[in-house]
Simulated scan of single mutants.
Amino acid sequence: MKLATQFRGTLVAIEEKSMTGSNNKYYQLAVLQGSEATSLSCTEEVYKQNKEMFKDYVFGMQISEYEGKKTLRVTGIYDLPGTATAPGTAAADPGKDKDKK
């Protein structure tokens, strides 16, 4: 069984690891939610998203169960609604056009 969910948290760290004596790589990230922190596995695509640390995001997560074993995996990191800016642009200054009529 697989379930998908989303949650809001702060990205604290993300790293690539490999198993001892093996070329197999896996990826983990650390997420802070309130005063609790945890380490979660994530996909290679999430690892390569190159998100800013110590910033709030919405995390997509897949919860799987197979033969009684449960796994959690982050499948996406998304900007909070209304906070994304296009690359190469700055936030608008609301007072910029104030004197124009």
Rank of each mutant, 00 (worst) to 15 (best):
Gln28Gly: 04
Glu52Lys: 13
Ala90Pro: 01
Gln62Ala: 06
Leu3Ser: 08
Lys98Gly: 01
Thr89Pro: 11
Ala13Phe: 08
Leu32Val: 01
Tyr78Gln: 08
Glu16Pro: 05
Ile63Arg: 02
Leu40His: 09
Lys17Pro: 02
Met53Gly: 07
Tyr57Leu: 01
Tyr78Gly: 13
Gly34Leu: 08
Val31Phe: 08
Val31Ser: 11
Met61Gln: 04
Thr85Ser: 13
Thr75Gln: 03
Leu72Pro: 06
Thr43His: 09
Asn24Phe: 06
Lys51Leu: 04
Tyr47Asp: 01
Tyr78Phe: 11
Ala92Ile: 11
Gln28Asp: 01
Ile14Val: 08
Pro81Cys: 04
Val12Tyr: 05
Ser35Ala: 15
Gln33Tyr: 00
Thr89Asn: 11
Thr5Met: 08
Glu65Val: 14
Gly95His: 13
Lys2Cys: 00
Leu80Glu: 04
Cys42Thr: 12
Asn23Ala: 09
Ile63Glu: 04
Thr71Trp: 00
Pro94His: 05
Pro94Ala: 04
Val74Ile: 15
Glu65Lys: 10
Gly82Trp: 03
Gln33Leu: 07
Thr10Cys: 12
Ala84Gln: 02
Gly9Asn: 10
Glu52His: 08
Gly60Ser: 10
Val46Tyr: 07
Leu3Asn: 08
Asp93Ser: 15
Lys2Ser: 07
Gly88Tyr: 03
Lys51Trp: 00
Ala13Asn: 11
Phe54Cys: 10
Pro81Ile: 02
Asn23Phe: 13
Asp56Gly: 01
Thr71Ala: 00
Glu36Gln: 15
Asp79Asn: 08
Lys69Gly: 00
Tyr26Thr: 09
Met61Gly: 05
Thr89Lys: 11
Tyr26Met: 05
Leu40Gln: 02
Gln49Phe: 00
Gly9Arg: 10
Glu45Gln: 13
Asn24Val: 04
Ala84Gly: 03
Pro81Lys: 03
Met19Leu: 14
Glu15Ala: 15
Asp93Asn: 15
Gln49Trp: 00
Ala92Gly: 07
Gln62Met: 02
Met19Gly: 02
Lys96Gln: 14
Ile77Gly: 00
Gln6Lys: 12
Gln6Phe: 01
Ala84Trp: 00
Ser41Phe: 11
Asp99Met: 12
Glu67Ser: 02
Tyr26Pro: 12
Gln6Glu: 09
Gly9Trp: 05
Cys42Glu: 12
Leu72Asn: 10
Ser39Met: 15
Thr85Met: 09
Ser22His: 04
Gly9Pro: 03
Lys69Tyr: 14
Leu40Phe: 13
Phe59Asp: 04
Tyr47Ala: 02
Lys98Leu: 14
Gln28Glu: 10
Ala90Gly: 13
Ala37Asn: 11
Ile77Met: 02
Ile14Thr: 06
Ser22Val: 01
Ala4Glu: 01
Leu29Met: 13
Met19Ile: 11
Glu65Trp: 08
Gly95Leu: 14
Ala13Gly: 00
Gly68Gln: 09
Gln28Met: 09
Ile14His: 07
Glu67Gln: 03
Pro87Gly: 09
Pro81Ala: 03
Ala91Met: 11
Lys51His: 06
Thr71Gly: 00
Lys55Cys: 12
Ala86His: 05
Glu52Ile: 09
Glu16Tyr: 06
Lys17His: 15
Asp97Met: 15
Val12Asn: 03
Val58Ala: 10
Ala90Asn: 10
Cys42Lys: 14
Lys98Phe: 10
Val31Leu: 10
Lys70Phe: 12
Val46Ser: 04
Leu3Phe: 05
Phe7Lys: 07
Ala90Met: 07
Met61Ala: 07
Gly60Leu: 01
Cys42His: 12
